[in-house]
């Protein structure tokens, strides 16, 4: 009897793993194709796409594409720019949006409900529709920097960061998560003498690992994939992000596919690194609740 049961469990486990492996393969194939193709000369690359060879390290393999790609475009600059812009935006976004959500959930103030519904309504407005007015706006914005007063934010890092710090989706994610935190934890902190800031920093945020990771990933992908906006507001090569950099390879008749794949492989590395680092956060933040049970 017990043996049969054990067998059943083994079978169930096996089939579950089979499904997971299949899904993993489906997800990994594009990456595999990208990496393998980046190692092949363009002529072979296109021929290989007709068969499974596209996913295999076969034929003439070299790092030539990488060398060529680095010559064609200042890849390191682009990647650094993107990492900088994305990193700063993600950090600021997590801070600003969680604070906003904190105010929406824990603090009582009049007009809260109305403002929150307006905020939610903005969820349905795609960024693309506001880019033109936004462009007109940022081109007129004042700034006091090291060189003194200036007008217009075009061709800067900040124009790529500021408009994306706060967004309704991130606030909404935090709000939903905060609402599920036990109310008594906040009340107990208040009675113990904690200020709002202390409650935010010492109680709410340490318990918010999962939502921080979620919001960070969404924001990271959104920012790292920015294309249209930097194309509109940035002309200088030195502050260009990676997606705009792709243009260096595609604005010609014969697209150097090998180099494109090499470029894509390089710019994928920060994304993977980011995911892997967050995975640890995810796992360590599976917090048990502090209330009964």
């Amino acid at each position: 009897m017990a043996v049969v049961k054990a067998d059943n469990r083994g079978l169930r486990l096996a089939s579950r793993y089979a499904v997971l492996i299949l899904v993993a393969i489906i997800f990994i194939f594009p990456l595999l194709f990208m990496v393998m193709s980046s190692l092949k000369p363009s002529s072979q690359l296109l021929l290989d796409t007709k068969s499974l060879r596209a996913f295999l390290p076969v034929g003439e393999l070299s790092l030539q594409n990488y060398t060529d790609a680095f010559v064609r475009a200042p890849i390191a600059v682009f990647v650094l720019n993107s990492v900088l812009i994305t990193g700063v935006t993600v950090l600021l976004c997590l801070f600003v949006c969680s604070l906003a959500a904190f105010a929406f959930v824990f603090v009582d103030w009049s007009g809260k409900a109305v403002i929150f519904s307006i905020l939610l309504a903005t969820l349905i407005i795609p960024y693309e529709t506001i880019f033109i007015p936004l462009l007109l706006m940022v081109s007129q914005l004042p700034w006091v920097g090291l060189e003194g007063f200036e007008l217009g934010w075009l061709n800067t890092y900040r124009v790529q960061i500021a408009p994306f710090i706060a967004d309704a989706l991130s606030i909404f994610l935090f709000v939903q998560f905060f609402k599920d935190l036990p109310k008594e934890l906040i009340e107990a902190s208040r009675v113990e003498g904690a200020s709002w800031w202390t409650i935010y920093r010492r109680v709410v945020m340490p318990l918010s690992g999962p939502v921080i990771a979620t919001a960070a990933i969404l924001k990271f992908l959104f920012m790292y994939n920015q294309y249209l906006w930097p194309l509109m507001v940035v002309q200088e090569e030195a502050i260009r992000p990676v997606m705009v950099g792709l243009g260096y390879f595609t604005d010609q008749l014969n697209v150097p596919w090998g180099e494109v794949m090499a470029y894509l492989t390089v710019i994928t590395v920060p994304v993977l690194a980011f995911y892997l680092s967050l995975q640890r956060v995810f796992i360590s933040s599976v917090a048990s609740t502090g209330v009964k049970g």
Binding site: P182, E184, L185, E187, A188, S189, R190, V191, E192, G193, A194, S195, V203, P206, L207, A287, S288, T289, G290, V291, K292
Partner: peptide
């Protein structure tokens, strides 16, 4: 405000902080 009333409160649901040790919980205030 609650914090300045010189009171302490014990809740039905305990409301202790799950991310802190017992020591940190007791020392919170």
């Amino acid at each position: 405000p609650a914090s300045e009333r010189g009171i302490a409160m014990v809740f039905q649901s305990y409301a202790i902080f799950p991310h802190m040790t017992v020591r940190e919980n007791i020392a919170f205030g």
